[in-house]
Measured scan of single mutants.
Amino acid sequence: VCQVIAMYDYAANNEDELSFSKGQLINVMNKDDPDWWQGEINGVTGLFPSNYVKM
């Protein structure tokens, strides 16, 4: 598990995705897919595009 910072706002398009705002910290749970990582914010988990965040 690592933390990343959102570089942009992201609004989920599907129920399994994670919405976040620019500057939010996201706990990364899974990086099996290079493009879509699984993350957690405040107890909510979902997929998000890895190119929207930085380490």
Rank of each mutant, 00 (worst) to 15 (best):
Val1Met: 04
Cys2Ser: 13
Gln3Met: 10
Gln3His: 04
Gln3Arg: 06
Val4Gly: 11
Val4Ser: 09
Ile5Lys: 04
Ile5Val: 13
Ile5Gln: 08
Ala6Met: 02
Ala6Phe: 00
Met7Glu: 09
Tyr8Gly: 09
Tyr8Cys: 13
Tyr8Pro: 01
Asp9Tyr: 03
Asp9Thr: 08
Asp9Met: 04
Asp9Phe: 03
Tyr10Asn: 03
Tyr10Met: 03
Tyr10Cys: 10
Ala11Lys: 14
Ala11Cys: 10
Ala11Met: 10
Ala11Leu: 09
Ala11Ile: 06
Ala11Arg: 13
Ala12His: 04
Asn13Lys: 15
Asn13Ile: 09
Asn13Ala: 12
Asn13Gly: 15
Asn14Lys: 14
Asn14Tyr: 10
Asn14His: 14
Asn14Cys: 12
Asn14Thr: 13
Glu15Pro: 14
Glu15Arg: 11
Glu15Met: 08
Asp16Pro: 08
Asp16Asn: 09
Asp16Gln: 10
Asp16Tyr: 15
Glu17Ile: 04
Glu17Gln: 11
Glu17Met: 11
Glu17Arg: 12
Glu17Asp: 05
Leu18Gln: 02
Leu18Asn: 01
Ser19Trp: 03
Phe20Cys: 02
Ser21His: 15
Lys22Asp: 04
Lys22Gln: 15
Gly23Ile: 01
Gly23Ala: 05
Gly23Leu: 03
Gly23Lys: 07
Gln24Asp: 14
Gln24Phe: 13
Leu25Arg: 08
Leu25Pro: 06
Ile26His: 00
Val28Phe: 01
Val28Gln: 00
Met29Gln: 06
Met29His: 09
Asn30Cys: 14
Asn30Pro: 02
Asn30Tyr: 06
Asn30Ile: 06
Asn30Arg: 12
Lys31Met: 11
Lys31Gln: 11
Lys31Ala: 15
Asp32Met: 10
Asp32Thr: 08
Asp32Ser: 09
Asp32Pro: 15
Asp32Trp: 08
Asp33Gln: 08
Asp33Arg: 13
Pro34Glu: 15
Asp35Cys: 05
Asp35Asn: 11
Asp35Thr: 11
Trp36Asn: 12
Trp37Asn: 02
Trp37Met: 03
Trp37Thr: 01
Trp37Asp: 01
Trp37Phe: 05
Trp37Glu: 00
Gln38Asn: 03
Gln38Asp: 12
Gln38Tyr: 13
Gly39Arg: 00
Gly39His: 01
Glu40Arg: 09
Glu40His: 08
Glu40Phe: 05
Glu40Asn: 05
Ile41Asn: 05
Ile41Trp: 05
Ile41Asp: 02
Asn42Lys: 07
Gly43Thr: 06
Gly43Asp: 10
Val44Glu: 07
Val44Tyr: 07
Thr45Gly: 11
Gly46Arg: 03
Gly46Glu: 00
Gly46Tyr: 01
Leu47Asn: 08
Phe48His: 00
Phe48Tyr: 01
Phe48Val: 12
Phe48Thr: 01
Phe48Pro: 02
Pro49Asp: 02
Pro49His: 07
Pro49Cys: 09
Pro49Trp: 03
Pro49Gly: 03
Ser50Val: 12
Ser50Gly: 07
Ser50Lys: 09
Asn51Val: 09
Asn51His: 12
Asn51Phe: 05
Tyr52Val: 13
Tyr52Met: 13
Val53Gly: 06
Val53Arg: 02
Val53Asn: 02
Val53Lys: 01
Lys54Leu: 04
Lys54Asp: 10
Lys54Pro: 02
Met55Trp: 03
Met55Ser: 14
Met55Ile: 08
Met55Gly: 07
